[in-house]
Amino acid sequence: MTTMQQEARPTEIRRHELAGFLRSRRERIMPEDVGLPRGRRRRTPGLRREEVAQLSAVGVTWYTWLEQGRDIQVSAQVLDALARALRLDASERAHLFALAGAIDPTPAASCATLTPELRQMLTQLEPLPACVQNSRYDILAHNRTYGLLLCDLDDIPPEDRNCMFLAFTNERWRSSIVHLDDVLRIMAAKFRAGMADHLAEPAWKTVLKRLLDESAEFREVWERHEVVQSLPSKLKHFDNAYVGPLAVVHTDLWLGRGGGARLVTYTPADETTRARLDRLQELALGRARVGSPAPS
């Protein structure tokens, strides 16, 4: 067997695994589950291929080739559409993208360590504001105190919950940051340094494109080509809309190898801040009691 044949074999195996996986997920969904008529002459268990193609807005021929294990390229956007059409859960979605050799651009999908135990830890850390972020600043989960630290985070759509994006585009978030210019410059420099290892990944390119499209300030900072590495802890100052000035120590605790996701905590630097964080937690809990959304 030649070297090229040896290299091609794992790819071929993965294509056939992908084909079988798609077929099995398709066959478990009944037409009535997705609002389609069953009809009288249905022999196929579950959905037909053309019905999956219709639900995911892709070509029937293209989807058929995918289920046949043919060597075709598939984008993250199409995989996302298929995952939704086939009603895949988080584990199945991750498996789909892995078999297709693609990166899932959905923020939460990139954090395999976002376990129920970690979510419980976020709650137990209160009144300390805490969240889980990945290296491109997506906020994957947060506790209630963090939800009121810089803005009303529960009012922000999940796809916009990125610290970089909010710092450059959301006025409420920006107004809470003391020394904003320095913070923006450092964040952009850290993002550039981190992106060096992810230049081809759709999720990173999506964040960068949104920033370039929507913030002239970011475009100006980005053109400086500054880079800086993360520090283990640092003093930060916020001007919170509910309780006033806060002085906190920011600490990153990395949750796995490769600098993927991290637990971000803010501990009070003085007693005044400690008391104000207690008050912020009370406000957040009060909102929860009257029916505000639970923390992510």
Rank of each mutant, 00 (worst) to 15 (best):
T2Y: 06
Q5T: 13
Q6E: 15
E7N: 11
T11V: 12
R23T: 11
S24D: 12
S24H: 12
R25L: 07
I29M: 13
D33R: 07
V34I: 13
G35L: 11
L36V: 11
G39S: 12
R40P: 14
R40T: 12
R41C: 12
R41V: 03
T44N: 09
T44G: 06
T44H: 10
P45L: 08
E50T: 08
Q54F: 15
S56G: 13
S56V: 10
W62H: 09
Q68L: 09
Q68R: 10
G69S: 13
I72S: 15
Q73I: 05
V74M: 05
V74P: 01
V74F: 10
A76S: 15
Q77K: 11
L79H: 03
A81M: 01
R84L: 08
L86S: 01
D89C: 06
S91F: 10
A94D: 07
F97V: 01
A98N: 08
A98T: 13
A98D: 07
G101Y: 14
A109C: 05
C111E: 00
T113Q: 13
T115E: 07
P116Q: 11
E117S: 15
L118Y: 03
M121Y: 13
Q124C: 10
Q124P: 02
L125D: 02
V132S: 00
Q133T: 12
N134R: 04
R136D: 06
Y137I: 03
D138K: 01
D138F: 03
A141Y: 00
H142Q: 10
T145Q: 01
Y146E: 04
Y146H: 14
G147H: 01
L150E: 09
L153T: 08
D154S: 15
D154V: 09
I156T: 12
D160W: 05
N162W: 04
N162G: 07
M164K: 00
A167S: 14
E171A: 15
W173E: 00
W173T: 00
R174W: 03
D182T: 14
L184F: 06
K190W: 00
F191A: 01
F191T: 00
G194T: 02
M195S: 05
E201S: 14
A203V: 11
A203I: 08
W204E: 09
W204K: 02
K205E: 06
R210C: 10
R219N: 14
E223S: 15
V228E: 07
L235D: 12
H237K: 13
F238E: 03
L246V: 00
D252S: 13
D252V: 05
G256P: 02
G259W: 02
G260I: 01
V264W: 03
T267F: 08
P268G: 03
T273V: 07
T273M: 04
A275N: 10
R276M: 03
R279H: 12
E282L: 15
L283R: 05
A284W: 02
R287S: 06
A288Q: 08
R289L: 14
S296R: 06
